[in-house]
Simulated scan of single mutants.
Amino acid sequence: MSRLFAIFIALSASLLVISPAHAEVRVLTSIKPLQLIAAAVQDGVGTPEVLLPPGASPHNYALRPSDVRRVREVDLFYWIGPDLESFLPRVLQGRTLPVVTVQSLPELRLRHFAADSQSHEAADPAEHDHDHSPGSLDAHLWLSSVNARVIAARMATDLSAADPTNAARYKSNVKVFDERLDAMDARVKTRVAGVAGKPFFVFHEAFDYFEDAYRLKHTGVFSVAAEVQPGAQHVAAMRTRLSEVGKTCVFSEPPLRPRLAETLTAGLPVKLAELDGLGGYTAATAQGYEQMMEKLGNDLAGCLESL
């Protein structure tokens, strides 16, 4: 009996060597919106990770040593590209595993800060976003469901290559994601239709893709470089612009409202509100991307409806 048992153990061990247990593909994304898309693709198979914590800016995040290790060790890494996460290129030079620069994917519908941006046509310097120079790529590309579909399809292809066992599941997840996005687009269009002609301002020109998809358009951008305190003349010009428009909303992004906001709007029929284009606190579930987009529509329409 002991001899048979020993043979059984030896055979079992050899089978384990020949057929190792399936290991989940580790996916890391730079920002939450990419994690939300990956969560839809990996639904039922794995859970993607995200690099930046809620509230962190993708423009100037300071990586910790543990962040650098994660970037270099995960199986698949997705980031928007140097036009958004300027802190990442140096770290990615030391990575040997696959890196996907999303802004370079074929079939994306990309926008640039130039003639297609009303705020850059304005003569008033108060209506220029100092973070985005004319002609540069608008890297907030995830705020278009058309682009989200392209990104999801690429993720499914990559995951299927790394994990052929679950290839059919990834393909099915993308199909379901596409169907949910169709329904989400219809809901958001209906939600914002009643406020499409109302003026609103933003502190950061980050929502052009969203606006274009749902027939909205900001009236102006009140943006000042973070390290520069605006002078009295600049603030007066912005207040004049607001007073000319009348009742309106000015949207900042969480977690911090610009110090300028209260001074800018004091005594005017203006409401301050937030739009979270990064979905900072959205749960990374299969429906997370749609929830982020619908929240944007609800928050924008809610403020404008309350005027």
Rank of each mutant, 00 (worst) to 15 (best):
I7F: 08
I9V: 13
A10K: 08
S12H: 09
L15E: 03
V17P: 13
I18Q: 14
S19H: 14
S19G: 06
H22C: 05
A23D: 12
V25Y: 05
R26F: 04
V27G: 09
T29S: 10
S30D: 10
S30E: 06
K32A: 06
L34Y: 04
L36A: 01
A39I: 02
A39E: 00
A39V: 03
Q42R: 01
D43Y: 04
T47G: 10
P48W: 02
P48N: 07
V50K: 00
S57H: 00
P58D: 01
N60A: 07
Y61H: 04
A62N: 10
R64V: 03
P65I: 04
D67I: 00
F77P: 11
Y78T: 05
D83L: 01
E85Q: 02
F87K: 05
R90Y: 08
L92V: 01
R95Y: 13
T96E: 14
T96P: 14
V102L: 03
V102F: 05
L105N: 04
L105I: 03
R109I: 12
R109H: 11
R109T: 14
S117C: 10
S119V: 13
S119G: 09
E121S: 15
A126D: 07
H130W: 15
H132G: 04
S133M: 14
G135F: 10
L137N: 01
D138E: 05
A139L: 00
L141F: 02
A153W: 03
R154F: 03
S160Y: 02
A161V: 13
A162L: 11
P164W: 06
A167I: 03
A168R: 12
K171H: 06
K175L: 08
K175E: 10
F177T: 01
R180F: 00
D182C: 06
A183T: 10
M184A: 12
D185M: 04
D185L: 03
D185N: 13
A186P: 04
A186V: 06
V188T: 10
T190M: 13
T190E: 13
A196R: 15
P199N: 10
P199S: 07
F200Y: 15
F201R: 11
F203S: 14
E205P: 08
D212Y: 14
A213H: 06
R215E: 12
K217W: 09
K217Q: 11
G220M: 09
V221Y: 02
V221E: 03
S223M: 10
Q229P: 07
G231K: 03
G231I: 04
G231Y: 03
Q233H: 15
Q233S: 12
H234Y: 09
A236H: 07
R239H: 05
R241N: 01
R241Y: 02
K247Y: 00
T248G: 00
E253C: 09
L260K: 12
E262R: 15
T265I: 15
T265L: 14
L275N: 13
G280Q: 11
G280A: 12
Y281R: 15
Y281S: 12
Y281V: 15
T282N: 09
T282S: 08
T282Q: 13
T282V: 15
A284W: 04
A286P: 06
Y289V: 12
Y289A: 06
E290G: 15
E294G: 01
G297M: 01
D299N: 07
L300P: 00
A301T: 05
A301M: 08
A301V: 07
G302D: 04
C303A: 07
L304E: 12
L307N: 14
